[in-house]
Structure formats: C-alpha cells, structure tokens
Amino acid sequence: MFTGIVQALGTITSISFNGKGAEISIESKDLDFSDVAIGDSVACNGVCLTVVKLGKNSFVADVSHETIECTIFKYLNPGATLNLEKALTPTTHMGGHIVQGHVDGVGTISSMSRTDNAVDIWINAPEDISRYIAIKGSITINGISLTVNEVKGDAFRLTLIPHTHDITNATMWNVGDKVNIEVDVLARYLERLLNHGHDNKKKSTMTASFLMENGFM
C-alpha cells in the first residue's frame, strides 16, 4: 500500500525483456534505502514492484508480462525517470490517499497550460475506467496522488502545484505522453456494492440513496 506522495526520483539503468516479462534495474541517489530489504515493495511510476536485488543506491525488480502490457513500462527505456515511493508503514503520514500500486490503465496527456502558480493538465482516460473518475475525487497519475478538478467525457483535468510539479517527473511530461492511471479503489468497491450481492448471483439491495445518506457518496 502507498499514499501517492512521491519520495524520490529514480532512473532506469537497465531493462531486459524476457518471455515472462522483464528485469528492471533502478538507481536513485535520493531515496533512503536504509529500511529497504529484499522482498519489500516500491511504487515505480505508480506500479507496485518487489525488490529482488538490492544495491547501495539501487534495486532490481521483476516486472510481469501482465504489468508491462497494462502500464507505460512497455514504452520505457534505460535513462527514463521514475517517481518512487516506498510502501507505507503504520507510522506513515497519510498525506495523499490509499494507493494500491495496481495500475488500471494508460492515459494520454492531451493538453498542458502553465500559470504563475500551477500547471493544468488534461488527460484522456481509457473508456473502461473513465466511469470511476469523479470531480474532486482522488486519482493516481504515475504514482502521484492528485485531485480531479474537471471531467469531460473520458477526459479529466488536474492542477499541479509547483511543489508537486517540481519534485516529480511531471517536469518532463509533454502533450502526447502516456501515463499510468490508478483510480480511487473506493470507486470500484462502490460499484461492486451497487451491482452485485455477496454471492454474485443476486442484485445487491445496496442503493445509491443509502450510500449518500450514510456518507459514502
């Protein structure tokens, strides 16, 4: 589990594809590795990866074929910069929102506009996940916890404050770039409650009105 608060930037030093997926090596001089061990999870551009080898300022992770196909890892090469976040602990400040590190789909940046104190970004989402994106809801883009400010069809607008923009790989984003999207996990559970019973055979008696009355929506 993660919070979507990026802790450091990392660089892909090597990536070797094989029949099962890929082995990826990531280096970061800014990430604190003192409490990282083999078997730990690290979010890399929002993708939960398991550390299988550990160096002084680097680690190696295996990436499954499924993960490669569902994320922007299929577009990345050595030298690419990744947002990194270690798995949360019981004492971690919950500054963002609950992030699983399970990317739902790949979006495309359609426009970017900069003002004095922010950067507005429009992203086109895949049709099959756009229904989970709501105004003022949480969303994770390349591992960054952000708030949706506007929704138009399958597109949504984000506003990055200078701090978030400057300490993440958002500084390198351009129109046309692909980004990892993880929707708020609560949206998926709400859909499940509304559409299915516990045995998957009968319609749930849970209604949108009930959820609203009890503070879930």
Rank of each mutant, 00 (worst) to 15 (best):
E150F: 12
M206L: 07
L84M: 04
I139D: 08
N142W: 06
D120W: 09
R114H: 12
P90C: 07
M206E: 00
G137A: 08
H163S: 00
Y189N: 11
T205P: 02
I181H: 06
I109P: 01
W173K: 13
K203R: 14
G79M: 11
I161E: 00
A118W: 05
V106D: 00
S138I: 04
E182V: 05
T164H: 05
G143S: 12
T71E: 05
L82E: 09
H97K: 06
H165I: 00
D177W: 09
V151I: 13
G95R: 11
N180E: 06
D177P: 04
E69V: 07
T205L: 15
V106F: 03
V99C: 12
R188P: 03
I181C: 10
H102E: 06
G137Y: 05
S113D: 12
T115E: 15
L186H: 05
D104C: 01
R157Q: 13
H198K: 15
G79T: 10
I141S: 02
E127A: 15
R114Q: 15
E69Q: 13
L82T: 03
G137E: 08
E69L: 14
D104I: 01
G107A: 10
V148C: 09
A155V: 00
P90Q: 08
S64V: 11
M94P: 01
I135H: 04
A187C: 08
W122T: 13
I133P: 04
M94S: 01
A187H: 03
I123D: 01
P90D: 08
A80Q: 02
V99R: 02
K74T: 08
A87M: 06
V179S: 08
I141G: 02
I135S: 04
D199N: 15
D166G: 01
L76F: 13
F73G: 05
G79V: 06
V63Q: 11
V63F: 08
P126I: 12
V151L: 07
N149Y: 12
V119E: 08
V151H: 04
L88Q: 10
G107T: 06
G101R: 14
D184H: 04
G176L: 12
R114G: 00
E191Q: 14
G96N: 09
I129L: 13
D128R: 12
V179L: 08
L88I: 15
D154P: 00
N149E: 12
R192M: 04
N142S: 12
V63E: 13
N124Y: 02
Y75D: 14
L146C: 03
G143C: 10
S64M: 13
T108A: 02
T89S: 15
G137K: 02
V179Q: 06
E66V: 07
N200C: 12
H198G: 09
H65R: 14
C70A: 14
C70N: 15
K152Y: 04
N180L: 10
G176Y: 13
I123K: 10
H165M: 05
N83R: 12
D177C: 15
T205H: 14
S204Y: 11
D166V: 00
D128T: 13
M206N: 02
S64I: 11
E127P: 00
M94E: 08
